[in-house]
Simulated scan of single mutants.
Amino acid sequence: MKILYVASRPLEINTSASIRNRATIEGLIENGNDVTLLTTEPDNNHSSYDSSMLPERLKVHYLKTGGVQSIAKGLRGKRTFIEIRKKLYKIWDYFNVYDNLKGIVGYAGRLKLDMKEFDVIISSSDPKSSHLFVYEWLRRNRDIFVRWIQIWGDPFLNDISRRQAWMKKRIKKEERKLLDGAEKVIYVSPLTLDMQKHIYKKCADKMTWYPIPYLRKEGSVKDSGRLEGKRVKLAYCGDFSSHIRNIRPLYDYAMSHDVELTICGISDLCLENAANIQVLPRMSQDRVQEIESKADILVHISNRSGTQIPGKIYQYSGTDKPVLFILDGEKEKLFHYFSKYNRFVFAENTCEDIQRAVDVIIKHDSDGVIYNSVPDFDPAKIAESILK
């Protein structure tokens, strides 16, 4: 099958969405599909640029973008850029429904790709402009039939990263328009699926959900007693904006216990390094793999609110390392869904319960939990489900 995969942010910009897209694309290729990626031209000077994120055997069609992205690209690398970028993006985000990669939509009428070549178009957020591009492209080519499958990393109206209440009516109208145009709509959280079916009842029959595929399956030397009597190393690799995730209990736990903790990601918090705590910015995928490979316990922190599930838990599910699953927000629903895999050790987001859960892992006293990769999150399996 010939597939056009549309993601307006380049895979080379290392984000959780890029990791999800890469894993999905690799699953599609593994199943024998011919995949072409349509995306925007990456900026090699971007702080999150990582050339290793691009899969082999993938055809890529790059588009140039204009507007605020062009301004940002020209300023990147200059000392004053960081503050100017923050102001530009803040202004854009406040007044615009879509992201700053919306410029990709301008190419819908002059794209040098023949839609008839493809059996399926898959658009994947985030950013949401990925869906808008395909909507406009199909609108201009109504005489050609091609299946359109949408994958939503985050919902539009109820994306917890957006806080402009006055824009909700406009956003809901745009979200409904996009959903109406798709043949199949996929979410990556069962909680989000339930919410979206309730809000957009007319589209409910075309909605489903699949978990995020892990990027790679990784193993390590197993020894059930290997953590007792040693200084345990924990790793949290993911962004942790304070209004989305609460990392303080984990940080405070490490400050008061004889463990090592590595934190790696973007945040508005200024956490200080300590003798046993290393705080790093977002790193390349290779560096993240190195950090995670040296850790004894991988840590996942749930969102404070909303139905979205951080993608890191699925990436950790491709390993055979212990995973500390810190519950927050929709705790009961998250526990109900993830506990069925008998893969994770759960803790409330408090210092005391984190300590209890870490002790359980150290003593290998986690009843019924098996530290193996989760078959349901295999890329080829999920890619097959997407195309059904």
Rank of each mutant, 00 (worst) to 15 (best):
residue 1 M to K: 13
residue 2 K to N: 14
residue 10 P to H: 11
residue 14 N to A: 04
residue 17 A to G: 13
residue 19 I to Y: 03
residue 30 E to P: 05
residue 32 G to T: 02
residue 37 L to C: 11
residue 41 E to C: 02
residue 43 D to H: 07
residue 44 N to P: 09
residue 50 D to H: 06
residue 52 S to I: 10
residue 62 Y to A: 07
residue 73 K to N: 15
residue 73 K to C: 05
residue 83 E to P: 02
residue 86 K to C: 04
residue 89 Y to F: 14
residue 89 Y to I: 07
residue 94 Y to N: 08
residue 102 K to Y: 14
residue 102 K to N: 11
residue 102 K to P: 00
residue 111 L to W: 08
residue 112 K to P: 03
residue 113 L to D: 07
residue 115 M to W: 06
residue 119 D to F: 02
residue 120 V to D: 02
residue 123 S to R: 01
residue 127 P to N: 00
residue 128 K to Q: 15
residue 131 H to P: 08
residue 133 F to P: 09
residue 134 V to F: 00
residue 136 E to I: 00
residue 138 L to Y: 03
residue 139 R to Y: 09
residue 139 R to K: 14
residue 141 N to W: 08
residue 143 D to N: 08
residue 144 I to E: 00
residue 145 F to N: 12
residue 146 V to E: 12
residue 152 W to G: 07
residue 154 D to C: 08
residue 157 L to S: 04
residue 159 D to K: 14
residue 161 S to C: 01
residue 165 A to I: 04
residue 166 W to L: 08
residue 167 M to F: 00
residue 169 K to C: 00
residue 170 R to Q: 11
residue 170 R to E: 12
residue 175 E to P: 14
residue 175 E to C: 12
residue 181 G to H: 03
residue 182 A to D: 04
residue 195 M to S: 13
residue 195 M to G: 03
residue 199 I to N: 12
residue 199 I to Y: 14
residue 202 K to I: 09
residue 202 K to L: 02
residue 203 C to G: 00
residue 204 A to H: 02
residue 204 A to N: 05
residue 205 D to M: 12
residue 205 D to R: 12
residue 206 K to T: 10
residue 210 Y to T: 10
residue 210 Y to I: 03
residue 220 S to H: 11
residue 222 K to S: 13
residue 224 S to D: 15
residue 226 R to P: 00
residue 226 R to N: 03
residue 229 G to S: 05
residue 229 G to H: 12
residue 230 K to F: 13
residue 245 R to N: 05
residue 250 L to H: 04
residue 254 A to D: 04
residue 257 H to C: 02
residue 261 L to W: 07
residue 262 T to F: 09
residue 270 C to P: 06
residue 272 E to W: 02
residue 275 A to Q: 09
residue 277 I to M: 11
residue 279 V to W: 08
residue 292 E to K: 01
residue 294 K to L: 13
residue 294 K to I: 05
residue 297 I to Q: 06
residue 298 L to K: 08
residue 298 L to A: 05
residue 306 G to D: 08
residue 307 T to Q: 14
residue 308 Q to H: 12
residue 311 G to F: 01
residue 314 Y to K: 03
residue 315 Q to K: 03
residue 317 S to H: 00
residue 322 P to T: 01
residue 323 V to T: 15
residue 326 I to E: 01
residue 329 G to D: 13
residue 330 E to W: 04
residue 335 F to N: 02
residue 336 H to P: 00
residue 341 Y to G: 10
residue 342 N to H: 13
residue 345 V to N: 05
residue 359 D to I: 03
residue 362 I to M: 04
residue 362 I to W: 11
residue 364 H to K: 10
residue 375 P to D: 08
residue 378 D to K: 13
residue 380 A to D: 13
residue 382 I to S: 06
residue 383 A to C: 08
residue 387 L to D: 07
